[in-house]
């Protein structure tokens, strides 16, 4: 599941660029951006990942009125929905982006996500590693593909420590 629509907003881009520590004015200063090749503020290279903000079901965001697996004063005991850290973990192994165009505030992207390849490898400590690809494509309002993002997740099978 991914967001279906991703509205590109100047404030969101500014906050994202601050968070990744990128001082390039093309991400926050419209006047400076006017003198660049794109001529506008554009989204930083990894900004597309922030489309999670617009996924109503995104499992790593607390939902109003629903239990959350992070702690309050103490751990809540709520089981993580899909995330790891408890043995059978899912981690982000790899991320790739292909850019056909860089987008600017005011655009609304349409997102199509699909599973890609799945493969297995034997881990160094004997556990099986399962890799799976997710391909997310971002289209502009005229239906042109602007960015293709490929994420690779890895899950480890919990291994009994016998040696």
């Amino acid at each position: 599941m991914a967001a279906e629509k991703f509205p590109i907003e100047a404030g969101h881009i500014m906050m994202f660029a601050r968070a990744v520590g990128d001082p390039n004015p093309i991400y926050h200063d419209a006047d400076a951006a006017a003198d660049t090749e794109p001529g506008n503020v554009i989204a930083p290279p990894t900004f597309y990942q922030a489309s999670a903000q617009y996924d109503p079901d995104y499992f790593l965001r607390p939902k109003i009125g629903e239990p959350w697996f992070g702690s309050g004063k103490e751990p809540t005991g709520v089981p993580p929905t899909r995330t790891g850290g408890d043995g059978g973990t899912g981690l982000h192994a790899e991320q790739r982006f292909e850019y056909f165009r860089h987008v600017s505030p005011g655009e609304t992207l349409t997102i199509k996500a699909r599973p890609g390849k799945t493969w297995e490898r034997q881990g160094k400590r004997g556990g099986k590693l399962t890799f799976s690809e997710n391909i997310t494509e971002y289209f502009d309002e005229s239906g042109e593909l602007v960015v293709r993002a490929t994420g690779v997740g890895v899950r480890t099978e919990k291994v009994v420590e016998s040696d």
């Binding site: 990744v20 790899e94 991320q95 982006f97 850019y99 860089h102």
Partner: peptide, 22 residues
């Protein structure tokens, strides 16, 4: 991981990047 990827992505700005993967 995406924070580190985002920080590392500072190398190519101004809309010149055509591919980036880590």
């Amino acid at each position: 991981g995406m924070l580190t990827m985002g920080m590392t992505g500072r190398f190519v700005g101004d809309g010149r990047l055509t591919a980036y993967g880590v």
